[in-house]
Nucleic acid binder design. Sequence first.
DNA 1: AAATCTTATCGTAAATTTACGATAAACTAT
DNA 2: ATAGTTTATCGTAAATTTACGATAAGATTT
Lengths: 101, 101
Amino acid sequence: MSRTLKNIKHDDDLKQIARFAKALGHPTRLIILKYLDNKNCCFTGDLVEVLPIAQSTVSQHLKELKEAELIQGEVNPPKIKYCINQKNWEKAKKIFCEFFK
Amino acid sequence: MSRTLKNIKHDDDLKQIARFAKALGHPTRLIILKYLDNKNCCFTGDLVEVLPIAQSTVSQHLKELKEAELIQGEVNPPKIKYCINQKNWEKAKKIFCEFFK
DNA sequence: AAATCTTATCGTAAATTTACGATAAACTAT
DNA sequence: ATAGTTTATCGTAAATTTACGATAAGATTT
């Protein structure tokens, strides 16, 4: 594959898009993001009440969204308050729109 | 989870977004889509030349993009000409922009 | 100190994904 | 007919994902 400096930068972009897209690639995670977007913030338990899956599975999906940096968790013992990571949310929006041109 | 008619429709949307996002969730597939977008159309062999992975793996990625209906293949023996599925490409664009609001 | 609450993590199983080489299928050219 | 070209599919292995129940960790309340 051709490897100009331009292409390498482009590759990095594509990797970032793929990383975001992968995180968005499960219905449950989209529901979580929509929920967070509506309610602004919520606790894990709020999602567990609303989703038809086990608590541990919800926690796992939250972890993936956190690792993709699309959400962030703030410790508020014994609860953890999750919110959308606005900075990266905007970045995702931008990067996707750009990708689709 | 609450299940009004509205929510069920919404769920379908989310499933469709997840389906598209999953297909976009690998750098190689993004490169393929970008390539197709630039060149309009191409043969499998063109991609194999350009990508640092085996022919069978390229074919597998093409299959996934085809199954997500983001591309389509037209037999042109013994080659197969791939193009972006414009209808669904537009749908993806729309659906993603809507999701990000 | 003990019980309770909330959520992450562990262990595990099943399914899916990613990658490869080898082979088959389908058509063209010699 | 034979050889060559192109690309899908098969078989397989390793890694990752998805889901669950059980348990641990961390803090509060009793």
